[in-house]
Design a protein around this nucleic acid. Structure first.
Lengths: 211, 211
DNA sequence: CTAAAACATGAGTGGGGCTCATGTTAGTCC
DNA sequence: GGACTAACATGAGCCCCACTCATGTTTTAG
């Protein structure tokens, strides 16, 4: 079935100035449309039209529709990690609960702020099963988050922490999706509930090991 | 944008014998194909071909592709709830942990057993945003599960329990998806981790209220 | 100045979702 | 049995989508 290794990827990176601008415009237009019409109704023609770029150009950069959305997700992911890293440095939370609350808050802020962030957050929605097991975006985020927090939690580099972060991220993602499905601004009770889940789990999971 | 109230629904229920059989065959073929080619590559033409039913007949029953997949999800959901209800009656778990473990195990069994269960479990994947807030399938499942367990947990009917079950279900769904993405048979470590999350959260969340 | 690499373009191809006009069959009442 | 109705059956074809490709232009490197 789907054996094409180039599916859902980039085809060519823009190097000249104009191309770079067009590339960014395509991602912006894609984000806008995701907010307006949703994932299912998004068409590459309309993305190209909005970005004022001919359809052929879109396909110079992105191997397919999934590649376009994946690139947007990657951009969002990078922004999110940068912001979390910056806040971790400034605020220096001293326990798990502090890290959890800060990270969730940052996510919520981005969902309210960044166009299109909600529809694809980090993982493209329609990704195929059966390919690239465990190499999805959330796994990458988990790894980066673990690296960011390892020095703070003290217990660096152990496999237990890695899996705990991975699982916690998956839960956070799903509960927050629910929170924003319930209320476009993010249901505050569910956001609080998200923090509860993570705190309960991570405290049970990590405390007994850290000491 | 999507204002069509009949999108993703059934159009006509089969009443005569032959139609009922065709209806079921369509769902079976849909489940098979979901397992084989995945959600994105599923075509209604192929579903109809497999079920040995002309394409027009498929659209007599289902308003669209999403309606077909939704009907499959509904069938899975019903089977799952029946099985959980049956086991709850027989095994009479006496605490939260017992209920959690049993329910997760039943889910895992079904994912290994029921064709197509994995791809859509209870919520159709490509559902549109912006419509029917909080009326997704997982919410329905949560409500039914709460009803099933309310008599056992003692604390029946309170809103806190309702939200806790809703959140727990969302977490379970996502962690188990990860477990089966990692390993087609379901990564046992992640399945154990799923139970941990639920137990940590629900114990913190419900115990203080139940007493 | 020249060769190569990067970039630009949009009509066209293939294919998928879904319709609809035209039937045929099963139940129902007298 | 005949007459009437509702349920069922069918598949060529419409529309629109993702994506291609042949042909040309511009930028960069030496």
């Amino acid at each position: 079935m789907n054996q094409d290794r180039t599916a859902g990827t980039l085809r060519r990176l823009p190097v000249q100035k104009r191309s770079v601008e067009r590339f960014e415009r395509l991602l912006d237009a894609c984000a806008e449309l995701l907010d307006e019409v949703g994932y299912a109704a998004l068409t590459t023609k309309e993305v190209a039209r909005r970005a004022e770029v001919p359809i052929g150009t879109l396909y110079q950069f992105f191997s397919d529709k999934e590649g376009l959305i994946g690139a947007l997700a990657a951009r969002n992911l990078e922004t999110f990690l940068e912001r979390v890293a910056a806040r971790l440095e400034h605020e220096e939370p001293e326990d798990i609960s502090g890290i959890v609350d800060m990270t969730v808050d940052e996510f919520v802020t981005m969902r309210r702020t960044i166009t299109g962030f909600g529809v694809v957050d980090f993982g493209a929605a329609g990704q195929d099963h059966t390919l690239e097991p465990a190499l999805d975006n959330n796994t990458a985020v988990a790894e980066r988050l673990r690296a960011l927090t390892a020095t703070l939690t003290g217990a660096q580099g152990n496999a237990e922490l890695e899996i705990a972060v991975r699982v916690a991220l998956e839960c956070a993602d799903s509960v927050l999706k629910l929170a924003f499905r319930t209320d476009p601004q993010g249901d505050s009770q569910l956001i609080a509930e998200c923090k509860r889940v993570l705190n309960s789990y991570l405290n049970d999971r990590i405390r007994p090991l850290g000491n």
